[in-house]
Nucleic acid binder design. Structure first.
Lengths: 418, 418
DNA sequence: CTGTTAGCGCTTTCAG
DNA sequence: CTGAAAGCGCTAACAG
């Protein structure tokens, strides 16, 4: 176990002080070119690798950026995480190398990587499995590491207790200098619970379409937790409206786990559309009244939930002509269950998903869904996490969820029209 | 920005020494129950969070476990990563809490997470995007953090230069005490290049089944890099044999990026089956001779490569009756291209994938593929990384790749039979 | 069982 | 431009 080489070793070898080596490595201070070269050579010869903990301790900061996801095996998160990470990674190669060229070239590919762990961020993704406890745990771990930033992706668990605990920890993180951004999840202290007590922000977050540069100088208090949210409600509403317009009135809904914000918002959008459909109270009430019976909740956003949910729905209401799924993966399961019953999609039953994951365009029939700009949202979150982009006015950007009608939805079978 | 609270603050508040607080937090030393409670309360009141870098520096070790993946948006990696992480996460709650119960209960859910970041590992996944440079970079970063373990998943780039650089860095990591495990990738210094030079370890890595407490000081030889590999070659061979048995002889192959080990091994298996098919040199030679013309390489393991590849193949050899894809995702693209040409699967052309990702059973027609035990392999890698499981003899375990025949393959169209 | 005493390896003023 | 020195916050022997 070769005694690990330290800064001091490099310094000795290069015949300079540790301070100088540090300055060369961090490129944050002028150093004579000759000295610099000597140091770099020593680093190379000794295969020196900075001791992260030590430098983090001394500098009171680290280059860790944490990305929390609910399910790493789900492309929904994979795509966002990948986009976030992509933004961070782009700071590559010669940021402010000062004297430039020589170094990058001189080091050579393989070995170069060893030396330059310079100003690069270590983006890591943490899989919470959707558990609030693990989420908190990871946040603690990240806080412990003095992470530079944290990005939380995907819906949250909508429980007052956890929401409060989470908000508290997030604010503490932010206060400690870690940038916190929410991506694909509602703003902190969401809908039912303001939680923004002590902050005393006078004005409502009014500016719907802020013309703003948002860099409102000076006056802004603590760096807030910034959010890139999806318009789940709006998307779901448009999706249901699409079905309604096709003539469906018996619409089943295989929702996600009931405690998740994503589930709730999509469901809310669905019901909103239902309510809007018939201006007269009685009719609208009719569809809405049905809604409860036609909604089942799955235990996860997975294929199995879709399969089981659709079977349940079919028992409960064999008359339905359309099934909405919590997301595309769930929709896959719904289709499977339908086929098993000998029902054709969309001739007998229309099916729609949500998210527009890559495979959705390739299923047969191609899946009608609501497109979420996962990649863009993730990239934006990444930039926000790095402080490369001005936070949106109010700290919250809501990105549009676009109806993407494909072949899995069509008019209800003749004679069954609403 | 509330000045962060330190161990000393907690110690003062609890009226004990810093050492005692440390002992309580790490539960690695006897502490009087009363004192312990006092400390815990102080921690709670002060919302203290351990400074990771500081403790890592002092203890010369960290609780970071890195999982490297080629593409985090690909479920292939997501599933493995999730499995690895699952193993690490299971160490949860009261490992060796000593005095037991009281604490876990006393702390309360939300707050509990804050305190106990005890013996838990921080499993993080790093997305290399398939780039060898980024792989090296992440390894450096991880080494910098003195990671406890590193798991590299998925195929490698089969280039002598990179292989050497990678092997070198991996061995250095291992030498520095980081456990290194390869999952779904061929063993280090793989097929063409041993690379185990200068290490001068007298005895072979002898202790096959160390009765070991593992903490064996000093005497332990180098902890080897252990591998959980997939039998890509065997799987591909069985898959092609399946097609051959159905009567196909014009089999197209949309392979992955040419430089990847995974691509090469699968292709090798395919060709092996082709060669084996006809004992007579001339026939076998015939199929093999065709193979080159019927093989196209994609730039990635994605849908687009499948789509483009299939189109190319169709131009080149409209007579083919089957198309093998680099993996299931690629197969999706292949099917899309085929459909576009008005070709039915499997009536006109059979299609098969590889990996058996979750969606593969749900596509129409259900995809014939080769099932890889992604989850099991990941879990095993996780256990290996934690030292929870004895390394396999020779340090390499090869897991089977099983042919999973479904509806997307069938006999070639009448009159076109080989 | 608990306090004291040294550092871990690096960054960073502050002087040259 | 470079060196010297003083910690960053925690852990790990040692003594009590």
């Amino acid at each position: 176990m070769a005694a690990t080489v330290t800064l001091a070793d490099v310094a000795a070898r290069a015949g300079v002080s540790a301070a100088t080596v540090s300055r060369v490595l961090n490129a944050n201070y002028p150093v004579a070119e000759a000295t610099r070269a000597r140091v770099l050579r020593a680093v190379e010869e000794l295969q020196y690798v900075v001791n992260g903990p030590a430098s983090a301790l001394a500098a009171a900061s680290s280059d860790l950026v944490g990305i929390l996801v609910n399910d790493i095996a789900d492309p929904f998160f994979g795509i966002m995480a990948s986009a976030v990470q992509g933004e961070l990674g782009e700071l590559d190669e010669m940021g402010d190398e000062g004297t430039g060229a020589g170094v990058g070239a001189g080091a050579g590919a393989g070995a170069g990587a060893a030396v330059r762990a310079g100003g690069r961020k270590l983006a890591v993704v943490c899989n919470t499995g959707g558990s609030p406890e693990r989420e908190l745990t990871y946040l603690t771990l990240l806080q412990r590491q003095r992470a530079a930033a944290v990005v939380l992706t995907g819906g949250a668990v909508d429980d007052a207790g956890h929401a409060r605990a989470l908000a508290a920890r997030l604010r503490r993180l932010a206060a400690a200098g870690t940038r916190v951004v929410l991506c694909g999840r509602p703003p902190l202290g969401g809908d039912e619970d303001r939680l923004v007590d002590g902050d005393g922000d006078g004005g409502r977050d009014g500016d719907a379409d802020g013309a703003g540069d948002g860099s409102g100088p000076g006056s802004r208090p603590e760096p807030p937790v910034v959010t890139v949210a999806f318009d789940n409600l709006g998307g779901a509403r448009r999706l249901t409206a699409h079905l309604l317009a096709l003539g469906h009135t018996r619409i089943g809904y295989v929702a996600g786990p009931p405690e998740r914000t994503t589930t709730r918002h999509r469901l809310a959008g669905h019901r909103l559309a239902l309510r809007e459909h018939a201006p007269e109270p009685c009719d609208g009430g009719g569809l809405l009244a049905e809604a409860d019976r036609l909604t089942v909740h799955g235990g996860a956003y997975d294929r199995a939930s879709g399969y089981d949910g659709a079977r349940e729905l079919l028992c409960r209401a064999p008359e339905l002509t359309a099934v909405l799924a919590a997301n595309d993966t769930v929709a896959l399961g719904v289709c499977a269950a339908l086929r098993e019953r000998g029902l054709r999609v969309p001739e007998d039953v229309s099916v729609a998903g949500f998210d527009d994951l890559p495979f959705s365009a390739d299923t047969r029939p191609a899946l009608t869904t609501v497109r979420l700009p996962l990649h863009d949202a993730g990239a934006r979150a990444g930039r926000l996490a790095l402080g490369l982009e001005e936070p949106p006015p109010g700290g919250v950007a809501t990105v549009r969820a676009e109806l993407t009608a494909r072949a899995s939805t069509g008019p209800p079978p003749r004679g069954r029209r609403g």
